[in-house]
Design a protein around this nucleic acid. Structure first.
Lengths: 246, 246
DNA sequence: CCGTTCATATGTGTCGTACTCATCGCGGAG
DNA sequence: CTCCGCGATGAGTACGACACATATGAACGG
């Protein structure tokens, strides 16, 4: 009525081409990692130009369904692109502090459930991976090496996500962490400040609950971890009192 | 460690161009819905060809950050493209029963947190929307109209997600529901069978907890709702005893 | 005076061609 | 047998031209 710039009945060719390529993948029975027809072959088979095929491929690659390598060819992405969020989903730049807080809340949901499921499903090997990551994190804290701390922290949560045996939660955890890491671009970063000591202890608590096979305890421990991290973050922000420069 | 498929130090131009375009959007202070520079202008400003710019734009459009309209121009996408999951993310088809179960677990995480936050943040209008959706759902059940039931159910959970005031959780909820709806493609669907009656009651419990402003009660009610739904779903599957075809 | 129609300008969509550059595979030199 | 280089393959980049959708405003007829 007022302004409805949508629905003009028109669909760009690269859009249908993208769908056709996906259908083709299915029809050819291609498995993740398999090689796809070349751009020229696709153009010929779809009865269109290479330009359109390329734009379609870019879309699919952005969605994490296809991978293109210069000099080699196109490949079906091995990664699960269920959200269509390959390595590209990372472009949302949190512009607002609110976004960062929302991200914490989002992570809270994911971490609780992954920890909960990990407590029920973690294999001995996965449990060891969690323990090891926690160890790296603690070591990084004790030696004051922020890079090690962050690496361990990341590995810790990733290991738990893996142990949850749920690909959707895994993707969500990964995306959330990546987005959060990018918030550092606007000068905000959870450093190894005062919260690190607490974090190490909280990691231990989560690990113990998972090891003990206590789902609810694990979930609660994870929730506390996020909540405390957020609190520290809030405190740190207020101290900085920074001047935005946009 | 696990995924480092980019082992050549090489980065395609359209990839950096995509980043630059995003940075440009931020730098220009463009808001969602605003018009962007034309492809030619972008090419000139980024010092590259229109070809590269177009491919970059296709990526960003697939990610839901940019919208292109033939004959008009490029626009900053309205919002929530954070996961890059426009109408395009919907290409993952759950092939396994495991996927459906994982989806339930995933939803459990999202619904718990949205309900929890909704209990703390829902405005009167949002609360009314939740109540109304629950009413539609109940009415659909009582009159045996499956479509109404499903519509109400969807509106109910969407309304709660909205009331959570967290865009990430909103997107996650929406994606989860869409993926789950698609699982009906393989012949599985939570029908209005026996679980509907329980579902209506559980909706009521969630609503009351949110209305009462009790976060934890809301979260627990949501968890029970998902758990029960999953149980019923499992039971229904076993009854069907269908023959998988692969 | 007002609405309709048409010409024009703007800008995305599509096509073709030519070239670069990374990668792979093969064959010959050492 | 190993290593080097050469050619083949195929994605990445660039340019130019045109098709087609859309917006704007002027000309026209009522």
């Amino acid at each position: 009525m007022t302004d409805t710039p949508r629905e003009s009945g028109y669909r760009p060719g690269y859009e249908v081409a993208a769908e056709q390529v996906l259908e083709l993948i299915v029809r050819l029975g291609l498995r993740p990692g398999d090689r796809m027809p070349t751009e020229n072959e696709l153009a010929q088979q779809l009865g269109t130009s290479r330009t359109v095929v390329r734009e379609a491929v870019k879309i699919l690659s952005a969605l994490g369904r296809v991978r293109a390598q210069k000099g080699r060819g196109l490949y079906v992405a091995d990664d699960e692109g269920m959200f269509g969020t390959g390595r590209w989903g990372s472009f949302f730049l949190p512009t607002d502090l609110d976004h960062v807080y929302m991200l914490f809340e989002f992570r809270r949901a994911q971490e609780m459930e992954t920890s909960r499921l990990a407590a029920r499903r973690a294999t001995p090997a996965e449990l060891r991976a969690v323990e090891e990551a926690a160890g790296v994190c603690r070591h990084g804290f004790e030696t004051g090496r922020e890079d090690l701390f962050n690496e361990g922290d990341d590995a810790f949560h990733t290991a738990i996500a893996t142990a949850s045996h749920n690909m959707f939660l895994q993707v969500a955890v990964r995306e959330a962490r990546r987005l959060q890491a990018q918030s550092s671009l606007i000068g905000l970063r959870g450093s190894v400040g005062g919260h690190a000591a607490k974090a190490v202890e909280e990691h231990e608590a989560i690990y113990q609950a998972i090891r003990a096979g206590d789902p609810e305890a694990a979930a609660q421990a994870a929730a506390r971890h996020i909540d405390n991290t957020l609190d520290d973050y809030r405190r740190e922000i207020q101290q900085r009192l920074f001047f935005s420069s946009h």
